[in-house]
Simulated scan of single mutants.
Amino acid sequence: MKLNRLHHIAIICSDYEVSKRFYTEVLGLEIAAETYREERQSYKLDLAVGGLYQIELFSFPDPPPRVDGPEARGLRHLAFAVENVEEAVRQLAAHGVAAEDIRLDPLTGKQVTFFRDPDGLPLELYEQ
């Protein structure tokens, strides 16, 4: 098997409008498509990330909570590459989103920080 690239990342949110606003207005992702699926009582929002990747944001009626420990088994976090971590943190703060202190990745020497989406999903900003 040869995997060519990452195709998409799917996220289920608890409040569609809040998460839609967060990913589009706060993070600045572009809406590629928005679909309401009546049979599932669910929205599917396709968000473009850098012209190569896509985040699929889903809403479902009463989705169960997920374990929220940073060292719990499963997906640890979703990381976004940015040119300037300090500037990105200032932009998050302007929208009322708190980020952890910026630190250096001990392996690469690059600046990184973590913050959370409206449902507590851990997100990372990683200096390109």
Rank of each mutant, 00 (worst) to 15 (best):
T35V: 14
D117Y: 12
E39M: 14
F60L: 10
I102T: 14
D101W: 15
G120Q: 11
R76A: 09
L3Q: 12
G28H: 09
M1E: 15
T113M: 10
R73Q: 14
D119A: 12
L107H: 11
L6T: 04
E17F: 02
I31W: 05
D46K: 04
P118A: 09
A93F: 00
E100D: 15
D62R: 10
D119K: 10
A88H: 04
T113C: 14
L125N: 01
L104Q: 07
A48R: 07
D105P: 01
A81Y: 06
G109Q: 09
P122E: 14
G69I: 02
A79Q: 00
Q41M: 13
G50Q: 03
Q111K: 15
Y43N: 13
E39K: 15
Y53A: 10
L121K: 15
L47Y: 03
T108E: 08
S14M: 01
A10K: 01
E127M: 12
A33Q: 09
Q41H: 14
R73V: 15
Q41T: 09
E71S: 08
E127V: 06
P63N: 00
L3Y: 13
R116Y: 12
I11L: 13
D119S: 11
A72D: 13
G74D: 10
A33K: 12
G74Y: 06
P65H: 11
A99N: 02
I12Q: 11
G51F: 05
G69E: 12
E56C: 02
K110Q: 13
A79W: 01
N84C: 07
E124M: 00
F58T: 07
E38H: 14
L75F: 07
A94W: 00
L75E: 04
R76P: 00
D68M: 14
D46Y: 10
E38I: 07
L29Y: 05
R103E: 09
L27V: 08
E86Q: 14
R90T: 03
E38T: 13
A72S: 14
P63F: 01
R76S: 11
E100M: 15
R40M: 15
E127L: 05
D101N: 14
G109V: 03
A81V: 01
T24V: 07
F58N: 09
F80H: 02
P63R: 00
H7G: 01
K110I: 13
I55N: 00
E56L: 03
S14D: 10
V49P: 01
P61Q: 06
F80N: 00
R21G: 05
A81S: 10
G51E: 05
E83W: 06
L123Q: 07
H95M: 07
L107T: 07
G120Y: 09
Y126S: 03
R5A: 10
P65Q: 12
A98W: 02
K110C: 11
E17R: 12
L3P: 06
F22S: 11
Y16L: 11
G51D: 04
H95K: 05
A94C: 03
R73Y: 13
H95W: 11
P63E: 02
L47S: 02
D119N: 13
V49D: 01
E25K: 14
D105R: 04
D119M: 09
R21I: 01
G69F: 07
H95L: 05
R5Q: 11
A98P: 01
E124D: 00
K110F: 12
K110W: 06
I55C: 00
P106W: 03
L6Y: 03
L107Q: 08
E83F: 09
F22A: 09
